[in-house]
Simulated scan of single mutants.
Amino acid sequence: MAGLTAAALATVGFLAYQAQSSVPEELVGRPGPSATPAASAAKAPRDRRHPTALPAHSGAGERVVYSVDDDRVWLVSAGGTVENTFKVTPGSVDPAPGTYAVTSRSKAVTGTDGVPVEHVVRFADVQGVVVGFSAAVDQSTPDEDTDGADPGVKTGGVRESRADGEAMWMFATIGQKVVVIR
Rank of each mutant, 00 (worst) to 15 (best):
V82L: 02
T99S: 14
V73S: 01
V117E: 10
V102T: 10
G91I: 10
R72H: 15
S104V: 06
H119V: 00
E118D: 11
D94E: 13
S77F: 00
G80I: 02
A96N: 07
S77A: 15
S106N: 11
T99A: 14
D113A: 15
V117Q: 11
S92Y: 11
E118A: 14
G91E: 02
D113M: 11
V102P: 10
V120Y: 04
T81I: 03
P116C: 10
L75E: 11
D113P: 07
V120T: 10
V109G: 05
L75G: 06
G98V: 07
S92H: 10
V117Y: 01
V120H: 00
L75D: 09
T99L: 07
T110P: 02
A108E: 13
G91W: 03
S104N: 12
F86A: 10
D94L: 15
V102A: 09
A101W: 02
E83K: 06
V76Y: 01
V115K: 11
S92M: 08
V76I: 13
S92R: 09
E83W: 00
A108W: 02
R72D: 06
V76P: 03
S106L: 05
F123S: 09
W74A: 03
S92T: 15
T85F: 06
V109A: 13
S104D: 14
S104A: 15
N84Q: 05
S77I: 01
G91Y: 03
D94H: 15
E118T: 13
V73P: 01
F86K: 05
V120I: 03
S92A: 09
A108N: 09
P90K: 12
F123Y: 15
V102Q: 07
V82F: 04
V117M: 11
G114N: 08
G111A: 15
G114K: 09
D94G: 05
V109P: 04
T103V: 14
V117P: 00
K107F: 06
D113Y: 13
K87G: 12
T110F: 01
T103Y: 01
R72I: 11
S106V: 03
V93C: 06
V88S: 10
P90A: 15
T81A: 15
T103A: 09
V121E: 03
R122G: 06
S77R: 10
G79R: 07
N84H: 12
V115Q: 14
D113L: 15
D113Q: 12
L75Y: 09
V73E: 00
G91P: 02
Y100S: 10
A78M: 00
R122E: 13
T112R: 14
H119K: 07
P97A: 14
H119A: 05
T110C: 03
S104Y: 08
D113T: 14
V93G: 04
Y100G: 07
G80P: 04
V88W: 05
V109N: 14
V93N: 04
V121I: 12
S77P: 01
S92I: 10
T99I: 12
R105W: 06
G91N: 02
K107V: 05
T112F: 05
P97M: 08
G98W: 09
G111T: 08
G80M: 01
V117W: 02
